[in-house]
Structures are given as structure tokens and as C-alpha cells.
């Protein structure tokens, strides 16, 4: 399996201060046009309104399937200040994993990736060193390493 996390899809210093801004900032990293970004943003917002993806302890995994994409994308964002994302424990979120995918992906990579990220997130709530990593490449190496341990 190829690396799930890639440096070009990571933003270590999110500027957003609200849930909506976080979603927009993360979606902005997707390699698609503005009209598709808007569709994806709206879909993610609708998904959040049906149940928060802020799983608590500083982590959120906003996700959705969308017809606007041909492939599965994983975007990672970090906010040292933290953002109110309506998380289950009410605490600010510092680490965001955005997962978006087409409605039908033959190998079911979307649900598999979502499951794996949900799994490593539990570990990330214990290991907080990701808050201190300053280089995207190191950050990605750290996350991909955690995923490999779970195989």
C-alpha cells in the first residue's frame, strides 16, 4: 500500500479559527478547481451537521464521499492554538484529518483509510510529539510510520 500521507497535503500551521474556516483551509489543499472545492466544502459541512467528526482529545476526522472527485485524498492540518470544532468532549481540536473520496471506489479505500486513521488517532491522543514536529516531511514520516505499525 502506498503512503497515505503526503507532504503536499499537509498544513502544519492552520490559520483558521472556526469549524467552517478549517474545512475551507483543508479543502483548499485539494488539487481541484474552485467550483469543486465549493461542492466538497458544502458536502463536508452537511456531514458535520449530521454528526460531528471531532472524536475528542484534540483530533477531528472530517470526511465524506463526493462526486466531485475521482480519487481518495487525505489532507492533514494542525493548529497549535486549537479550534472549536464541536468535538464530542467539547475541547479544541489541534489535529485534523480530512478524508474525501468518490462515491464508489472499487477497492473500498475510503472506508479502509478512514478506519486506519480512526485507529491511529487513538494512539495520537497518547503520543503528543506531533505537536512539536516542524517539518512536513518529518510529520508525514511519523504518521506513515504509525500506520505501518497497524498493518
Amino acid at each position: 500500500m502506498k503512503d497515505v500521507f503526503k507532504p503536499e497535503f499537509v498544513k502544519l500551521e492552520l490559520e483558521a479559527t472556526t469549524r467552517e474556516e478549517v474545512l475551507r483551509e483543508l479543502v483548499d489543499l485539494l488539487p481541484v478547481g474552485d467550483d469543486k472545492k465549493e461542492l466538497i466544502y458544502q458536502r463536508l459541512l452537511e456531514r458535520e451537521n449530521l454528526g460531528t467528526t471531532g472524536i475528542g482529545k484534540g483530533i477531528a476526522i472530517p470526511h465524506s464521499r463526493t462526486l466531485a472527485l475521482k480519487d481518495v485524498f487525505v489532507i492533514v492540518g494542525r493548529s497549535k492554538k486549537g479550534v472549536d470544532f464541536n468535538a464530542l468532549d467539547g475541547k479544541p481540536v489541534h489535529l485534523f484529518f480530512l478524508i474525501v473520496a468518490p462515491p464508489y471506489d472499487p477497492k473500498n479505500r475510503y472506508l479502509i483509510t478512514l478506519g486506519k486513521i480512526a485507529e491511529i488517532s487513538r494512539e495520537l491522543t497518547r503520543k503528543k510529539e506531533w505537536m512539536e514536529i516542524e517539518k512536513k516531511e518529518e510529520f508525514v514520516k511519523f504518521l506513515n510510520g504509525l500506520l505501518r505499525e497497524k498493518k
Binding site: 456531514r47 472524536i55 476526522i61 465524506s64 478512514l114 480512526a118
Partner: peptide, 15 residues
């Protein structure tokens, strides 16, 4: 699709 995948998502911990 979300309605179909609801159960799987809940198993992963998403309310």
C-alpha cells in the same frame, strides 16, 4: 450513501 455506511462509521467511533 451515508445512510448505507452509517453503521460502519459508528463502529469506527463517529456518532
Amino acid at each position: 450513501i451515508l445512510i448505507k455506511e452509517k453503521e460502519k462509521e459508528e463502529e469506527m467511533g463517529f456518532p
